[in-house]
Design a protein around this nucleic acid. Sequence first.
DNA 1: TGAATACAGTTTGTATACAAATGAATAAAT
DNA 2: ATTTATTCATTTGTATACAAACTGTATTCA
Lengths: 231, 231
Amino acid sequence: MTKDKKQQLSEAIQHNVLTLQWAPGQDLDESSLSLQFGLSRTPLREVFRDLAGQGFLSQKQHRNTRVAELSHQTLREFFQAAPMIYSAIMRLAAENRTIAQVQQLEVIQDDFEQALASADGQARSLANHRFHKQTALMANNRYLLPSFERLLIDHTRIGQTFFRTAGPDQPMSEASDHHRQMIAAISAGEVARAGDLAIEHWNLSRAQFAQFVMPQSLDVNLGQWIQGEPS
Amino acid sequence: MTKDKKQQLSEAIQHNVLTLQWAPGQDLDESSLSLQFGLSRTPLREVFRDLAGQGFLSQKQHRNTRVAELSHQTLREFFQAAPMIYSAIMRLAAENRTIAQVQQLEVIQDDFEQALASADGQARSLANHRFHKQTALMANNRYLLPSFERLLIDHTRIGQTFFRTAGPDQPMSEASDHHRQMIAAISAGEVARAGDLAIEHWNLSRAQFAQFVMPQSLDVNLGQWIQGEPS
DNA sequence: TGAATACAGTTTGTATACAAATGAATAAAT
DNA sequence: ATTTATTCATTTGTATACAAACTGTATTCA
């Protein structure tokens, strides 16, 4: 019944990164974490390496592992890639979904709506994360997955502010509406419709990004990227 | 003067995987490799983990590390993702390239043409690999990169047969032509043109893939069909 | 005979001790 | 006073011994 310690550690780190409880660029301490989780440094470092490979952490030779940065350069790259990848994932999900996966997605969406009703920003954001992660699972494409997951990590981190501050009003319920429509399109195998919904959903997200305040207090006008280009 | 052993090991593994000297699905032996490279198992396993994260190797809990598989399912996913990603990378390369990078790309292309003139299939294939890897570097997008690199790994592995068997005739010189046109488009910052060239180049590649006729019904490792030589 | 199980050998995973590298603080020099 | 060396404490990287898990073979029992 005892869960795998490495798994626990990995999930804890992911949670802390996604919720911004660990700030972008923040240093991690091997010895304190290994003490905390009852693991020696060897397996701990393997978890670090995995998570660095997935985009949660970043590592440099002979330097301490840290939470992956979120710079203005990062955001620029984000906007260049996100619409295309999100749309592709949604189209493939509509193409390759199984019935069991659709049912699972509906359960996750129920959780998301419950979270929206609550005041818990982290719960909202993480539920949203899980929704999109499930669509990626349904897309079932090992080549697209790593890029999508990286985008989703940073999307979730940036969206934190939005989910934390906003009440369950207009834009929130609109996002939830989109999710419901996505489920319908995926379930019906409407590929083009699913792809269009991804774009639509994405355009809604753009508004959230404007509220994001850079942790390292870089005085960047996010608007310039948001107004920017589609592609 | 002594190069980094881990780096050497990593490059050797990548080389063996890309050239099919190690067949897809083939088991790796930790102790023999650690002996061979004068490294203990700890750093060796870290290299394994990195390369598994990049798509060269695959790992499962309590099972030996192996060369990443190439199944019929893999190929299906490959065809779903490749044109879009290749095209996006090429467009971004045209958008973000620096002069130094273009010059570097020209050097790589010279190498490629030299390799085509030779009879060395591995050299041809690896030179082609380096060309496309350089375009990905120029695209300068951390989100797209991991997906592109995974595609390129398998593209190179599948293309091996083509580069090994064909002489420097029609399709080969056509590929080289494409490369030259890509350099021109990227250098001139012609984004749309670069994206179109990627699609065109990709359509040429499809012909190469046709040489690999697999039994559609069997989800077998491609490796056993590919490998022609001992050792 | 055949299935299940127990055992042994091999391989993977973890802990820990030690080596190498880094960065900060201090001392020396121009 | 600023720059350049030097030292030392801290942190990262590696080697190795040991523990846990898997695989194949042999043995037992129906």
